[in-house]
Amino acid sequence: MMLDVAIRHRLPDFELDARFQAPAGVTALFGKSGAGKTTVVSTIAGLMRPDHARISVDGTTLIDSETGVNLPPHRRGIGYVFQEARLFPHLNVRANLLYGRRLSRRSGPPPRQIIQMLGIEHLLHRRPAALSGGEKSRVAIGRAILSNPRLLVMDEPLAALDQARKDEIMPYLERLRDQIGLPILYVSHALPEVARLATTIVLIDNGRVAAAGPAGEILCDPRHAPLLGSRQMGAILTARLSAQDADGLSRLDCATGPIWVPRVAAETGRTMRLRIMAHDVMLSLTPPQGISALNVLPARIVELHEDQDGVLVQLDTGGQGLLARVTARSAAALALRPGLQVHAILKAVSVTAANIGGAG
């Protein structure tokens, strides 16, 4: 699947001029509130008409201002999940789930598969009023998928939920990404969600695409710190869960060696995504001795970027990027420079792991 987007549209505060391509997987549109993200996805779904646009999915043109093509929303094959669940209050969960399916001309996954994957089998006979916020969100996601779309658009679907409900839903979203194969355009200004879900990131700033590319590259590039948030900068490493140790730690093997983290509830052999925050990485010029940290990765400095919080050190760890945050004084004392070989030190308790199957 390839989504091609080119949109120009005058808004009250700025002019939207967004051009990007979204490959298969989860493409996250990330930016501050008011950056133009919702305008982009509303145009893709056919909910608003832009001044100029050309949008296609897998070669099917949805809108082309030059030729006059403008498919109505019901012919675009877009499943849309809003911030609010927007379930039909007079229908039970089963009827809500199947509502769009009877109108679709496309084939898709069987309802039983989606119902089981979202863990909503026990909710089928309930009305929306009897559902929690997290349950409503899962039903809304299931309804959109069962309309058999060619593309699923999710416009900040977790924004109205508290952290506990977000944590409840995230594993289901990961499961959908990894097992269904349905391309997803995911809008968010919450970086932890994006870091956990996205395979591709498109950064939107004041109506423009500031950067686009694989999630691991975008999140590990210090040049994007002003948009991502300097204190939120980190890296994503792909690793394989190779062992569950008797002392409560899990061993994950990545390109540069093993990483130990608090026990991960998954079977060995599973591919994992690790988010490692820059402020949780220490640097040493020599192999450290007599320290409590278990994870020491050999690395090479790629670049250094100074900002108001110190220095972001971009590292290469055997082909995977890593970031370290150090003070300007430490950078000077260690004489850090591009090309220098160092050792990156990670505390086991600072590494968070998110199961992503084989989609790393």
Rank of each mutant, 00 (worst) to 15 (best):
A140K: 04
P72N: 11
I55T: 01
A140E: 00
D64H: 02
G119M: 03
T67F: 00
N96W: 13
L124S: 04
S56Y: 08
F88G: 02
A130W: 04
G77C: 11
S137A: 15
I120M: 07
R138S: 10
H74M: 00
N70S: 10
D51I: 00
L98Q: 04
I63A: 03
L131D: 04
P73V: 01
T43G: 15
R86D: 08
A95F: 05
I55N: 03
Q113K: 06
S42N: 15
L118K: 03
P111E: 11
N96D: 11
R76D: 00
K136H: 02
L47T: 06
P50S: 05
H125S: 15
V69C: 10
L87Q: 10
R49Q: 13
T43H: 05
P89R: 07
R86A: 09
P110C: 04
H90P: 12
R75D: 06
P72T: 01
R126I: 03
I63C: 06
Y99P: 12
N96H: 12
E84P: 00
I115L: 06
Q83L: 07
S107L: 08
N96G: 13
L71R: 11
R143N: 02
L71A: 06
L98E: 13
H122I: 00
K136M: 10
E135V: 04
D51Y: 02
F82C: 02
E135T: 03
I141Y: 10
P111H: 10
L97N: 07
P50A: 13
N70Q: 11
Q113P: 00
L71K: 14
S65G: 04
E66D: 15
R101G: 01
H90F: 13
T67V: 02
I63S: 01
S65F: 01
G119N: 06
I141W: 03
R54W: 10
H90Y: 12
I115R: 07
G59E: 05
F88M: 14
V57Y: 07
A140Y: 01
I44D: 05
Y80C: 06
V69E: 10
R49T: 15
R138N: 10
Q113W: 01
G142L: 08
L87G: 13
E121H: 11
T60F: 00
N96Q: 11
I141K: 08
P72C: 05
N70H: 09
R49G: 06
L91W: 14
G100Y: 09
P111Y: 04
L118R: 03
S107M: 06
Y80H: 03
H90T: 14
P50T: 05
G68N: 04
T43W: 08
L103F: 13
I115G: 06
I78L: 10
S42T: 09
G134N: 13
E84N: 12
R101Y: 07
P110G: 09
E84R: 14
G79V: 07
Y99F: 15
R76S: 03
A129P: 15
S132I: 00
D58E: 14
F82L: 08
A53T: 01
R49N: 12
P73L: 09
L103K: 09
A95R: 15
N70D: 13
D51H: 01
V69H: 01
P109F: 09
G108P: 05
T67L: 07
E121K: 14
F82Q: 07
V57S: 10
I120W: 02
L98A: 04
G77H: 14
H74T: 00
E66F: 08
I55K: 02
I120N: 04
H125Q: 12
G108W: 11
Y80S: 04
G108H: 05
T43C: 08
L131A: 08
F88C: 09
H90C: 11
